[in-house]
């Protein structure tokens, strides 16, 4: 996540605006989770022991809009960091999912396959996407923490 790969037409541009941004940043600061890390593709990974739970950030779900279809990797798939491993589709666009780390897919959230709206409603909890058995903790240490990610969004769009 999250690069829009196909755009329906000329309409779609930069969805950012300052108001939205400050609202997202504000939300981040009130819900700090210390062991949640972020990629520059706007995905998060929450690591417990050697299992990483993966989802998309609030910023990403807001930018994407109503998710109508989630294509998740199959359980058992071996993925490398930055591998394309699925996609999310909203009314307006498609965006690919990239694995934030290397490892083996051990579980997927089948609830979001039947109810993709969960990704918009609860991107950090019920709307998680899949779990990885991590093969390298070193990769995780190179991701952004909460504050760095908030800063990244700000810089990326100023």
């Amino acid at each position: 996540m999250i690069r829009i790969i196909k755009v329906t037409n000329r309409i779609w541009g930069n969805v950012n605006n300052a108001q939205r941004l400050s609202a997202s940043v504000l939300r981040f600061s009130t819900s700090v989770v210390k062991d949640r890390y972020y990629t520059d593709k706007h995905e998060w990974i929450d690591v417990k022991d050697n299992i990483g739970t993966i989802g998309i950030s609030d910023y990403a779900q807001d930018a994407l809009g109503d998710v109508v279809y989630a294509e998740l990797p199959s359980v058992g798939t071996e993925v490398k960091i930055k591998d394309e491993c699925g996609a999310l589709e909203s009314v307006k666009a498609a965006s690919e999912l990239y694995s934030p780390a290397s490892g083996k897919v051990v579980e997927i959230n089948s609830q979001v396959e039947t109810r993709p709206a969960l990704i918009n409603q609860s991107c950090y909890e019920n709307g998680w996407l899949f779990k990885l058995e991590l093969s390298s903790m070193e990769e995780i240490s190179k991701l952004m923490n909460e504050d760095q990610y908030a800063e990244f969004i700000k810089q990326d769009h100023n």
Partner: peptide, 10 residues
């Protein structure tokens, strides 16, 4: 425009 990416669009 089709090739422009969603988040990197500047």
């Amino acid at each position: 425009n089709c090739k422009l990416t969603f988040f990197k669009l500047r």
